[in-house]
Design a protein around this nucleic acid. Structure first.
Lengths: 216, 216, 216, 216
DNA sequence: TATGAATGAGAGTTCATTCAT
DNA sequence: TATGAATGAACTCTCATTCAT
């Protein structure tokens, strides 16, 4: 009964086939419908209708309805996970170690921008996370070590410099992520506008206050 | 196609009927199944089986499957909404205006405790919020004015005292709420343990840093 | 699947028990609901509600829903069938053989009056006849011989007197009955008023014209 | 609770789609089952079984069980209503005004023939009329004005010629229709044979007697 | 006796999926 | 390749009937 969402993300990968125009329509229609109504409340007939193709065509490329979900979430998940971590490393090593403020601003702004560009995927992903404990655990197992390992040294650098409070990496991530989400949630759920520049400015202002060792 | 969850919460009130033992079993089974699998992936036959009753019994009290959802979420929503706001007022007026730290600790701890006691309802509620834009808007319209009006004066008090940064109330709420959630999410989704005492201590420590005017 | 309506009328007879006040309410409610919505579209819960009793009570006297139908139709059918026939005999033998016109007027008026007094039963009966060929056949087998036998001599009397065309009894009955129904149908289905006096006057006027041998 | 049969007849028109062979089987099976057992006592599973298709197929073309009823009754109702009226007009104007006898014989014979060819539809229609006051009223509003207007002049013609008694049109229709039905009812309900030629001959003989002014 | 909670079979309907065309 | 008719299992819900209280 429950959807096997771990498979959805990690095995049913959409063969990197070049999709035909109709297949792309199917994907676009599904993206909109899943994000608006949820996966379960969207029928394959709804998708076919919105995509302007027959039901048979929906099944040509994506063997099952879950296959469509996979085709949507797979590239999304792959962008969230490794990028988030490796990007920082690249940044750190390629630049001359900017200040914590510059670092946070870059990270926060970058993730907000990503969320804005993947709004619908993010909503679908969140829905999936909520009914699927397994998927959450698989994701955690995937992301956490990478993040900790790769970011650990960056945080340590700022901690040694006295710019960052000496909390464990997990605790620091927790706050950064949650503050980023505090700006995304109204944007995602209430369809309010999001000015990434301004929002990340504000977020960093608050984060710096909370994460700076000076005040402790 | 979409569930009319606004009605679910605000009109279909479960008559405060004393429920029979079997009806309570139905509610308990539904609570667990909805929170684990989601509303749509739970069939009334699943509920009947888990509750140890016939399918007919499921429908005797709760006229529809949505009716069961309503019976679960109604009391929950009613606890979240007015309590959150009125509680602060009560606290403020009944006590001798404690420090911002004490105030935050009380609020944070209280809400975490509530979330812990209503874990399953909270998951179901979150799922519903994600596919139901209407519901989100109705909730926002309901909560926001109450919160702003009742809390505005409290925040102002701390701001005048120089304990709280001079940001708009909405911005301050945003951070408090998101930091509380940063502790709840792993508890809700990964089934990790939650030590409310410790978590609220940590959360407040961070919040005070970010919200204190001294560092600006 | 089909209701065993032959049994309904001829075997499940309602024991001639004196009905309690509640049982009478059940019967009254059923009469109204069956005639308005049809037997199948009326639930026993509807009946209980309208009668102001519990569902259990509905089943105390009438073992099944069909039993209620039987309790309604049995006395009705028994009034239609033997009365129709025996009444004429009584009339003929007790009076001094009136004219055909007087005879027809009496018969037509009497049956219209009966229909008016049993409007609801008649509608229910008609509904039952339409889905139940068996019942129709049983009724025909019951009524036809009686009618022919008992009425045959009466008609013959008028035929010998030259007041009535020399058609077979069945043909004559056919016209009399259908003309009576031509006045009943609008009353039953369109809820139009029915002035029995006037209607029977009109009906007899037409029937006499059609049945008089003079014009042939 | 009551079926919305007015809509069934006047709006839900079955798109004049060419039906597939299976869809026609569904319609044929429904026609037989509805006429034998009644709409309510026929399940969609019965229909599927008799038609030799899956239950899903029953719903592919006809969105609901009522949709099947509509697909059966719509063309029937449309044939009864305008034809009945317009045909006479056509006949009168195209021929050299035949005698009343010829006119009645044509009308009676034509309607009996139609009933014979649409026996099952007629039974279903009659069942529907009996539980549906609304439908009856809608039909009356539809038919009566047409009939009166178009037939009024025809009757007047015969009345002026002294072939027809000077009764109102409604009264004359009443008798014609009821005499036609007097031959149809045994055919419909008792499955007796119907010789249209002979029956219409007999019917007209009686009608002429009753409707001729000579004897009044 | 009267109640109404409980039952469970079966109703109408939907929908992911298949496959002949 | 693309279609959409066809499938049938599973779903939500109803209801005649029973029975402990």
């Amino acid at each position: 009964m429950a959807i096997n969402s771990v498979n959805v993300l990690f095995t049913h990968a959409l063969a990197d086939t070049a999709l035909s125009a109709k297949q792309k329509e199917v994907l676009k229609a599904s993206l909109v419908l899943f994000s608006e109504q949820g996966f379960d409340r969207t029928s394959t007939s709804d998708i076919a209708k919105k995509a302007g193709v027959s039901e048979g065509t929906v099944y040509k490329q994506f063997k099952t309805k879950e296959g469509i979900l996979a085709a949507i979430l797979k590239p999304f998940a792959q962008s969230v996970i490794p990028t988030a971590a490796s990007e920082f490393v690249t940044m750190i090593s390629s630049t001359s170690y900017p200040s914590l403020e510059e670092f946070l601003r870059h990270v926060v702004q970058n993730r907000m921008q990503f969320a804005k560009e993947n709004k619908l995927q993010l909503k679908i992903f969140a829905q999936e996370l909520l009914h699927n404990t397994e998927l959450v655990q698989a994701l955690e197992a995937e992301i956490k070590p990478k993040l900790i390992k790769q970011m650990g040294q960056v945080l340590e650098y700022y901690q040694k410099q006295g710019q960052l409070v000496a909390w464990p990496a997990v605790r620091i991530f927790r706050y950064v992520i949650s503050v980023v989400f505090s700006y995304l949630v109204p944007y995602l759920l209430l369809e309010l506008p999001l000015d990434v520049e301004e929002a990340s400015q504000e977020a960093v202002e608050f984060l710096l206050g909370g994460l700076s060792p000076a005040t402790k």
